[in-house]
């Protein structure tokens, strides 16, 4: 059995069906991609998995446990971390603080608010190990030199990497990346492809990513799901998906002459 199962999850906003009967079975250690035209419902699926939306119907299981409709902060605690399509860093806080906040949920399991205010030994130990781990992560993503800078002042590519580092700080088993290559130039994209493959091995992760950049999707994903208007229209290895008529139609549309001929 895989690490994450989505069983026919559907999300309706009033009369609009954003996602319909979406099914997914992610295997441990897999690197899967979710693609589809704008408005296909990809981010909605992320929001359902991470608890920001409660599916209208269907259930989601993580490691065998039903997590449907669980609050986002609880879902992270169980081991699902995510990044956002439009970067959501804590802009006025330092790069280091941004990563350390990802460790807070582990710190707060072992110590209390009062211990924190009084700086009792147990809290100090936790804080120190939190700091060490944050520094290690910053080294891993190559942001150690800018740890004191405000997160909002970093260049775009670094902000993306910082968001991934912050997600990693929560020690997830499953990482959801929402358009990690958006706004990157070809060089940065190339680095990103290597980076994603590297962190999967280094941190023993299962990764699901949404991406429009086909170079990234075809370059790293072992399995691809194609979504259009909330419906999964194709699924398989990059080669299979690339040659699927339905996918080509969804992305490029249909030639008027072809339709007439039918």
């Amino acid at each position: 059995m895989g690490i994450l199962q989505a069983e026919q999850i559907t999300m309706q906003f009033g009369g609009l069906t954003a996602v319909k009967d979406f099914c997914l079975d992610l295997k441990q250690g897999e690197l899967a991609g979710l693609i589809g035209p704008n408005g296909a419902g990809k981010t909605t699926i992320f929001n359902m998995i991470t608890g920001f939306y409660k599916p209208t119907s269907g259930r989601i299981y993580f490691g065998g446990r039903d997590i449907t409709g669980l609050r986002p902060d609880k879902v992270v605690g169980l081991g699902i971390a995510r990044t956002f399509q439009n970067i959501r860093l804590l802009a006025n806080l330092s790069v280091l603080d941004n990563v350390m906040i990802g460790r807070h949920l582990h710190l707060s399991k072992h110590t209390t608010f009062v211990e924190g205010v009084l700086r009792l030994p147990r809290y100090r130990r936790e804080e120190e190990s939190m700091y060490d781990q944050a520094i290690r992560l910053l080294k891993a993503v190559g942001l150690e030199d800018v740890k004191g800078e405000k997160a909002g002042s970093l260049p775009y590519g670094q902000q993306r990497r910082l968001e991934i580092a912050r997600a990693l700080a929560t020690t997830p088993q499953l990482l959801l990346l929402d358009e990690p290559a958006a706004g990157m130039n070809p060089n940065e994209t190339k680095d990103l492809i290597e980076f994603i493959a590297r962190i999967r091995d280094e941190f023993d992760l299962t990764i699901l990513l949404i991406e429009h950049d086909m170079k990234v999707v075809m370059g790293v994903c072992e399995r691809i799901l194609v979504l259009d208007h909330g419906i999964t229209i194709s699924e398989g290895t990059p080669e299979v998906v690339q040659n699927d008529e339905k996918v080509i139609t969804a992305y490029l549309g249909v030639d008027v002459d072809d339709v007439a001929a039918q």
């Binding site: 991470t50 920001f52 609050r71 986002p72 902060d73 992270v76 605690g77 971390a81 995510r82 956002f84 959501r88 860093l89 804590l90 802009a91 006025n92 806080l93 906040i101 990802g102 807070h104 949920l105 912050r166 700080a169 929560t170």
Partner: peptide, 11 residues
């Protein structure tokens, strides 16, 4: 700074 991000980080 950002409620959505905070919640996504387990706060």
């Amino acid at each position: 700074e950002n409620e959505v991000a905070a919640e996504a980080m387990g706060v």
